[in-house]
């Protein structure tokens, strides 16, 4: 039987298949990768009635433009996204997030941009017809690991789909919360830095710069002064690490980060605040707050409870 499919009219800036990430390969240089904003990913899958580990299409800033060929089916887009549905009868509709949308043969979904955020998620009823690579649907473009030959979507390619499920209607009233502070635990080289620098880091604004992608986020603000040494022996890194090179400008490592590095580790973003951090677009000012491990663990429990409450609202 012939599969239904999307033709990629425009790939967008960085559109990749992702799931919750790939484990157990750090030691050979493969990071977790996986979706940047886990909550919006889980919502996308729940709204479309797919399992919580199914792959979605993640996009950043400008998303893909996709033309559909097949039988009527549902799609869902989550995040804060401006998109247009160009129907096959040439009517155009403004798209609505957090809601099942019916698409028909010949319809075009044009994901124009994210709105005051970075990432969005596209899920489809029945799911994408792609294979796991090393036990995950995540894509690490830097090492060409993952589905779609480890690459982002390119213009003209096809995306095959699994068999559709029956049409249904679902929506979620959801507003992405913004938080005042990104919370941080001190890192293993925290005491390399001057007391003034530490005070500045936790009291002044830092701007997210354009040098930000799935690998890392470079910040601009008061430079952090390292009193001890600006290079350490190369060692492992984890998602959310705030490392500070010799120039004093912090870099936060994100999901596709290199697995080994030699810059001092000033701190680590707590797991509960990761989704919100990555959705902060360049030009935004953010503030950091230092907390203790016990609090971070409790905040993670709270984050999970909130996520589950949101998912349980979807019937």
């Amino acid at each position: 039987m012939k599969s239904d499919y999307f033709k990629v009219i425009r790939g967008g800036l960085n559109s990749t298949f992702q799931d919750q990430g790939r484990e157990n390969l750090y030691h050979i240089g493969i990071p977790f990768s996986g979706v940047m904003d886990k909550r919006n990913y889980l919502i996308a899958n729940r709204l479309i009635n797919n399992g919580k580990d199914e792959p979605v299409l993640e996009f950043a800033f400008q998303g893909p433009c996709l033309k559909y060929f097949g039988n009527k089916r549902n799609i869902v887009i989550t995040g804060e996204i401006n998109f247009i549905l160009a129907r096959n009868n040439s009517e155009k509709e403004k798209g609505e997030c957090y809601k099942t949308i019916e698409i028909n043969d010949g319809d075009v979904i044009d994901i124009i941009s994210t709105n005051k955020s970075v990432y969005g998620y596209f899920s489809v009823s029945g799911g994408f017809k792609i294979d796991k690579v090393w036990n995950s649907y995540s894509t690490t473009t830097r090492a060409n690991v993952g589905p779609n030959n480890g690459c982002k979507l390119i213009n003209g390619q096809k995306i095959l789909l699994n068999e559709k499920k029956p049409i249904f209607n679902r929506r979620l009233n959801f507003v992405n919360t913004k938080i005042e502070f990104i919370r941080v635990l001190k890192g293993t080289n925290f005491d390399y830095f001057s007391q003034d620098s530490i005070n500045n880091f936790f009291s002044k604004d830092f701007e997210v710069t354009k040098l930000t992608d799935r690998m890392g986020m470079r910040l601009k603000g008061v430079k952090l002064v390292n009193l001890k040494k600006t290079n350490i022996k190369s060692e492992g890194l984890v998602k959310g690490t705030i490392q500070v090179p010799a120039d004093g400008n912090p870099i936060i490592l994100l999901s596709d980060h290199g697995t080994i590095g030699g810059y001092p580790k000033f701190g680590v973003i707590i797991s509960a605040d990761y989704d919100k951090l990555v959705q902060t677009p360049p030009g935004t000012k953010i503030r950091f707050k230092k907390i203790e491990l016990k609090d971070a663990e409790n905040l993670y429990k709270l984050y999970n409870m909130e996520t589950n409450n949101i998912l349980n609202k979807i019937l």
Binding site: N24, L25, Y26, H27, K233, E235, G236, L237, V238
Partner: peptide, 10 residues
């Protein structure tokens, strides 16, 4: 995940 390096293990 396990990340061995010269003199550390994460």
């Amino acid at each position: 995940n396990l990340s061995p390096s010269y003199n550390k293990l994460i």
